[in-house]
Amino acid sequence: MSIIIHEGLRAYIDPLTEHEYAALERSILTEGCRDALVLWGEVLIDGHNRYAICQRHNIPFKTIQNDHFNDLEDVQLWMIDNHLARRSVSDFQRGMLALRKKEIISMRIKAQDENGTSGNEETDIAVPVVKPTQSRQDIARVAGISSNAVLQIEKIQRAAAPELVQAVRDGTISISAAAAVATLPSNEQAAAVAGGRKELQQAAKQVREKIREQKAPAKTSKLPDSQDAENPSDTNNGAMDQVSESVILQQRIKALEAENAALIEKITQLNAALSAATATN
């Protein structure tokens, strides 16, 4: 049987670590390839590591077909759900996969809205209705992690240097610490990664301390003299924190803009559906 390796699909899911790959290889050498490889036609869509190990050691394997896909995006969505169902996937990988799923679905909805159709008119194949996974809570539910972790992963995805992203994947640094280090310039991130775990932890600590220092109490308007004399502590009780450093504020603004865009897309979709229903009636 001819098996085609699609490089885009193979690179779509994060590779195993050296330890994980070695453990899988030992298992296959001892017990054989117990799980069948999954093919879409001749394209391998699940079992790339097992296939490589079996080829290297001339170990027989089984294959099964999954032909329920219309295009490559269907395959990618299936791969994401397939990996999210596995317990061995880290929280960071889960968050990244859920964000990729959001991106694919958002692009599909946008394309459907632009085309004004929900099906393939040439082949009469119904395109499944897809719901936008836009809110941070939705993404967290898909990934099986907290919404705060999703926020931190979004920060890493947006601003982290490649070296820092790899450090999170390897487990050298936690998601929360990496989100803090990601606010530094790329060259400082790379230098922290090169310094190892302790250097990364120290960099994250310094960033957090800097943010806390910049959250100084804001000045409040003075009370009348008589009230000041009677309640000298009121000024302290009514004090408010100043705005955090500009990078944190910008990230919040971007998050709100993204949520606003998501609401606009939902409203557009609902209006399109209502117009279609009215035209039918």
Rank of each mutant, 00 (worst) to 15 (best):
R86F: 00
H6R: 09
C54D: 07
L97E: 05
T117F: 12
T30R: 10
H6S: 11
I59V: 13
A111D: 10
A111P: 00
L29P: 11
I53D: 02
A11K: 13
R10V: 07
L16M: 14
G95D: 01
N66C: 11
S106W: 10
R26C: 09
Q55F: 02
E73A: 01
Y51F: 15
E7T: 11
I105V: 15
R10K: 15
N49F: 04
R50Y: 03
I59Y: 02
E20M: 07
K62M: 12
N49S: 13
H57T: 06
R50M: 01
I13D: 01
F69S: 02
V89K: 07
G32Y: 05
A98Y: 03
D74Q: 06
T30Q: 08
S106F: 10
R94N: 07
N66A: 12
S90K: 08
I59S: 08
E31R: 15
G95S: 12
Q76L: 11
T17V: 03
H48R: 12
L39Q: 09
M107A: 15
R26H: 14
S2A: 14
Q76F: 00
E7F: 00
I4G: 03
I3Q: 09
S27C: 04
L72Q: 12
W78C: 08
I5V: 12
E114F: 02
L39S: 12
N58D: 14
E20I: 06
D46A: 11
G41Y: 06
A22G: 10
G32D: 09
Q76T: 02
D74V: 04
Y12I: 13
R50W: 02
D71T: 07
Q55P: 01
A22C: 06
G47F: 07
T117Q: 11
S106R: 14
H83R: 13
I59T: 09
D81W: 05
G95R: 03
L16H: 05
G32N: 10
E42H: 10
D74Y: 06
E31G: 09
L9V: 08
H48P: 05
